[in-house]
Design a protein around this nucleic acid. Structure first.
Lengths: 96, 96
DNA sequence: AAATTGATTCAATCACTATTGATATATAGC
DNA sequence: GCTATATATCAATAGTGATTGAATCAATTT
């Protein structure tokens, strides 16, 4: 199977994983969840005045990337990092 | 100095650093430079048929992010990772 | 069961980034 | 000096992602 010149599958996957965190709002969310997890959406403070629907959008991007997962608690929804989130992110970057 | 709710400076900086590598072409370049550095532009193979000016554009994004640096060798221009490129990238991600 | 709270979804717009095509610059060889 | 090679820059377009505003859904409270 000749694969020499084309972009490998893992590159596309890794690049889109990195894209999921290459945004100030989402990186802030990720850091906050790394520090204290799980955290309900209402307690995430990632900026002066980020509207709830925009926060929802960014959380969805992180969910779709498999970096966070949710559990409902009453009317709250708690967000937590997935088990392999940080490993997968670091693995996407080259290491010397 | 009250800083509680706003996005910290480092978040914006780190997010844009990650954005520089959150692209399949640039991630491929970065990996190739990690493996064999320095490498002249003409020897970078990051896709089936990437036009030279597009490659130039992506290299400029990496240069502007301070991730790569150049040295001229005849009519060639060699690209190499900067000394702290990989450290800065990993530092931008949270670690458990 | 109506009202409230916490969060998501949808459609539309705005903003940014990647790509293309053409032109320019620098070095080397003839 | 002219031509060819290697790379970069510029302007325009296309494509993608973030933001906004309105509407919806689910769980709780009264």
């Amino acid at each position: 199977m000749i694969e020499s010149i084309s972009l490998e599958q893992s590159i596309e996957v890794d690049a889109s994983l990195l894209a999921a965190v290459a945004d100030p709002t989402r990186l802030a969310i990720l850091r906050q969840l790394t520090a204290t997890t799980p955290t309900c959406v209402c307690e995430l403070s990632v900026g002066p005045t980020i509207p709830p629907n925009l926060l929802s959008y960014h959380l969805k991007v992180l969910r779709d990337a498999g970096l966070v997962e949710t559990t409902r608690r009453g009317r709250r929804i708690d967000y937590a990092l997935t088990a392999d989130a940080l490993d997968r992110l670091h693995a996407a970057l080259p290491r010397h």
